[in-house]
């Protein structure tokens, strides 16, 4: 039984995540099998795509049920990019669509908060500002640059659960979260060079 599974539901950058874990000497299994998921110590939820399509695929494969069952058994979950957004209650990408509802908050369009008219999608490297009270991202990551590529972003209801921010469009947006057994990153640690690899390693070390 694999300790770490990467959910394979047709909308993820599975290969890039698996490669970055390989680089760190961590093995992981890409799967959509119910029993493998509910028995994993850590479930990684990747995602490149549109929220609605991705949620539909997850539900069709009953992976939403698998994730919730696993969480009850104290498994941990790590959502990346769209996978991070899917942890929340809903998204407004292509109409209002329900998410997994594991974290309180909504995914909103960057257009709505873009006072200083930054270009959207937000593509490229930005420095993250660390919330000092979080347990996952060490303060030494403050100001370190990671790679973003997204047009929507979650707004968490409970701000103390936000582990890092970035400045965007004249405001601060929630670039990562940590609450109980759930971690999410809007940026791509698997595409953010050595900084990203270190973030992945620290996160996995903390979670399992």
């Amino acid at each position: 039984m694999s300790d770490i599974v990467i959910l394979d539901y047709g909308y993820g950058n599975l290969f890039s995540i698996k490669s970055s874990l390989n680089e760190l000497g961590i093995s992981a299994l890409c799967t959509k099998q119910f029993d493998k998921i509910i028995n994993a110590k850590l479930i990684i939820l990747p995602g490149v795509g549109s929220f609605y399509q991705a949620m539909k695929a997850v539900e069709k494969l009953h992976l939403d049920t698998a994730i919730k069952k696993a969480l009850k058994k104290k498994s941990k979950i790590l959502g990346i990019c769209l996978g991070y957004q899917m942890l929340f209650e809903q998204s407004e990408e292509f109409g209002i669509n329900k998410g997994l509802g594991l974290i309180k908050g909504k995914v909103i369009s960057l257009n709505k908060i873009n006072k200083s008219r930054n270009r959207i999608p937000n593509v490229g490297w930005r420095p993250i500002l660390i919330n000092k009270n979080n347990n996952i991202l060490a303060e030494s990551f403050n100001g370190k640059m990671v790679y973003f590529v997204h047009s929507f972003v979650p707004r968490a209801t409970v701000e103390k659960e936000v582990s890092s921010f970035i400045k965007f469009g004249g405001t601060k947006i929630h670039s990562s979260i940590h609450t109980n057994n759930i971690v999410g990153f809007q940026f791509h640690p698997e595409k953010s060079g050595n900084v990203g690899l270190q973030i992945l390693k620290d996160t996995i070390d903390y979670l399992i």
Binding site: Y11, V48, G49, S50, Q53, L82, E93, F94, P121, V123, V149, H150, S151
Partner: peptide, 9 residues
């Protein structure tokens, strides 16, 4: 392409 994978890609 955008509907399936998001316009960011």
């Amino acid at each position: 392409g955008a509907n399936n994978f998001g316009n960011q890609c």
